[in-house]
Design a protein around this nucleic acid. Structure first.
Lengths: 172, 172
DNA sequence: GATTTTTTACTCGGATAAATAATGTCCGAGTGGAGTTGG
DNA sequence: CCAACTCCACTCGGACATTATTTATCCGAGTAAAAAATC
């Protein structure tokens, strides 16, 4: 019952990427600097987010990462599952069958009650995470966060985001 | 996001101990045999349950483990926390402070919104586990489990439980 | 001066070590019962 | 025959290796921009 350290980094980075405008991108090195993380290691987690279609990556000198869809459609569950894996935390090893006396498979057609209870709790966990959208995180931070920290974050994003020329950058 | 393998063993053993009568005990070696587990390793988890006041241990030739309180008052949450530790799965490292620009502590009096969202989800998880009592697990197994497996389990408990003489064994 | 080509610097991506936690095993302290011996 | 003592086998408890997972790092493939050469 312990989440990897990369989950926190992934969510913070996703929240920061929610602040970039249009289809601009932000380099992983910039985000690593913003949170005092190892650039090489952060790449690994960001790569997992790309593989899960949560982020998009752009190579090249002006490349970086950007959200693959609006922040309203990204939940914390998406990020957690992408980083930690989609399989449930409780894995039923069916140890009830490992006893000295063994029955045929017909005795175990009913699922293990313990497994059912654990999975039910985990569904509640995931449902709560699915409700928490990335846009809510950002909005709460903008509303209740410290003004100084907020201004610094916005300035940081403004300074490090790199516009892309491929699509329309919507700048007048 | 992965629970240790010992959680499953701990819950199964607790459910089996719920079937012993009065203040009788059952040796760890018997439970290890019942589930095909390593006896030495199972001891470790059972010891954690004793330390958490969920089980009671009796030393000596006729010793073993028994529930420290009725199964109605033991929840799956108690067992999971005893085995996996009480600290939350998501540990906020406060990486928001590790950026290049640092403010004084007054900028971080508000808790991290990401941490709050993760802890909220975990509270839902724990609430669901707290609702699941050990007696419910046993009752469901008795009602819906396979009759053969149920009979074998009861016979196993009847064969391996060891009455204690210290208190009244309530046998006429 | 404009265009094409080449170079270059910067990005992500995956393969590779070190550190940490989980897993599995072993031996020792303690205890109640059985066997033995003396009364 | 009964009681006390001794011995012993069985229990849990914690300390010690082994394996798996997580964490951290490095180097290579690819790419778009910039610089240089040519028309």
């Amino acid at each position: 019952m312990k989440l990897g350290e990369g989950v926190e980094a992934a969510i913070h980075c996703a929240a920061m990427l929610a602040g970039v405008e249009g289809n601009s991108t932000m380099a992983a090195s910039a985000m690593a600097e913003a949170f005092g993380l190892s650039p090489s290691y952060l790449l690994k987690h960001l790569n997992m987010l790309s593989a899960a279609r949560i982020l998009e990556s752009v190579s090249g000198p002006a490349g970086g990462y950007r959200l693959a869809r609006p922040a309203e459609r990204i939940s914390l569950l998406d990020i957690v599952l992408a980083v930690e894996g989609r399989e449930p935390a409780f894995r039923c090893g069916e140890i009830r069958r490992n006893g000295p006396v063994t029955f045929d498979a017909s005795a175990y057609v009913k699922p293990c009650g313990i497994n059912a209870a654990m999975l039910k709790a985990e569904r509640a966990y995931r449902a709560a995470l699915a409700e928490a959208k990335l846009s809510d995180i950002v909005a709460t931070y903008a509303a209740e966060g410290d003004p100084r920290s907020l201004a610094a974050s916005c300035a940081f994003v403004e300074r490090h985001q790199r516009p892309q020329k491929s699509s329309s950058t919507k700048q007048a």
